Amino acid sequence: MLYREAGQFKASYQADQQIFPIRQDRVGFSLVLAFFFLLVPAVANQYWLQAILIPVLIFSLAALGLNILTGYAGQLSLGSAAFMAVGAFAAYNFMLRVPGMPFLLALVLGGLCAAAVGVAFGLPSLRIKGFYLAVATLAAQFFIIWALTKFPWFSNHSASGVISTQAVVILGYAFDTPASKYLLTLSVVALLALLAKNMVRSSTGRAWMAVRDMDVAAEVIGIRPLHAKLSAFAVSSFYCGVAGALYAYTYLGTVEPEGFNLDLSFKILFMIIIGGVGSILGAFLGAAFIVLLPIFLDNIIPQLFGGLLSSSFSSNLQLIVFGGLIIFFLIVEPHGLARLWQIGKEKLRLWPFPH
């Protein structure tokens, strides 16, 4: 009864093309933002902020970048973690080598460096597609990690290759507490998510989806596949680069090239598969699922079996349960959690009438 659009008239084309054309969606989105910006920092403890919410937000941004490339442009990629590494190490070197470099500018420049690298490794997409393109981006994963490890200049000649990030200071205010780091991460992620939502609804986003659905037909109607594919690689890598810089500065504080390994790339890929390919909301839902489920299993399995299981068997059982849940979910709803949310909204709009 509450979720109805009857009586909400659009008097202009702009009103009809809003991100949230239904009033209830706008109110709900405002309440969600108010909850995460105002209530969560006031009531959440340090563990929730630093160990759960911040990584969920950062991985949501990385998954959003991969979703732009894979979900909207149809280009497979297995190098998301490598582009995160480029953003992290680029932001670190800008902060280190440029006196007075503002953190937000270093964040943007790190993303731009990742975008440039993404475009370079996206050039094979003009000739190959599908699994062959995935292999090409897999080469980027190994090459970037090798370069960051081989050339000590990137880590400021650190013997171990580990970098310790500088203090985050914006307009004289130091972001050194979990609450302040959480608010900074949330602000950046929310801004970039809104920009992505607008971008996929623009002519650029429609070009990406046309190339994804049928690149030959898209070229016939005047869309340039070169521009569409490379712009998708650039935007996707930019988002991953910013996520990598936040991963280093607001989450860990110290990172090494091996921390951005292939396992992390697969984890980000699982996030968009579970959350929903080609969905902005799906990136957030998938990241929350992947990050929170292992924590839930860590707590629930020892309580269920007590001291009957050894620690090694318990850890393996967690992996088995985690993989089984992923397979079960993909069988039940292959379009992801975002599709379940969409189905629920459609049922609410029609309830109590039969459908």
Rank of each mutant, 00 (worst) to 15 (best):
A248D: 02
M214A: 13
V168S: 01
L285H: 04
I295V: 08
G259K: 02
A193K: 10
S237K: 10
P178S: 00
S202Q: 15
M271H: 05
V200W: 06
D213A: 08
S279V: 08
A167P: 12
K197E: 15
A228K: 14
I170H: 03
L281R: 15
G278M: 05
V291K: 06
S180W: 10
I272M: 06
I170S: 05
T185Y: 00
A217G: 04
I290Q: 00
K197P: 07
I223Y: 13
F233S: 02
I170C: 03
G253L: 07
M214C: 04
F238Y: 11
L195H: 13
W208E: 02
A218W: 13
G259F: 05
D176L: 08
G282V: 05
A196Q: 07
A196W: 13
F289C: 09
A193C: 10
G205K: 15
N299I: 10
S187F: 13
G205M: 14
Y182R: 01
A288S: 09
L281P: 11
G253S: 05
I223V: 15
S202A: 15
G276I: 14
H227G: 14
E258R: 15
L264I: 10
A234E: 10
R224E: 08
T250H: 01
V235T: 13
A167K: 11
G275D: 04
G222V: 14
R201F: 05
A207M: 13
V255F: 09
F260T: 01
W208H: 07
A232D: 06
L191M: 15
V291L: 14
L252C: 07
A288N: 06
Y249S: 01
S180F: 08
M209E: 14
A207E: 02
V255P: 05
R212K: 15
V277S: 06
S180I: 00
N261Q: 11
G253Y: 08
D215Y: 14
Y249K: 00
K267C: 06
A179I: 00
S187W: 09
A179M: 06
Y239H: 00
G222S: 15
V168K: 00
T250C: 09
L285N: 01
V189Y: 03
I163E: 01
M209Y: 08
G241D: 09
K181L: 12
T254K: 13
V211D: 05
V235K: 03
L264S: 03
V235G: 07
M214W: 12
M271T: 02
L285E: 02
G275C: 03
L230R: 07
T250M: 04
M271F: 09
M209F: 08
A179G: 01
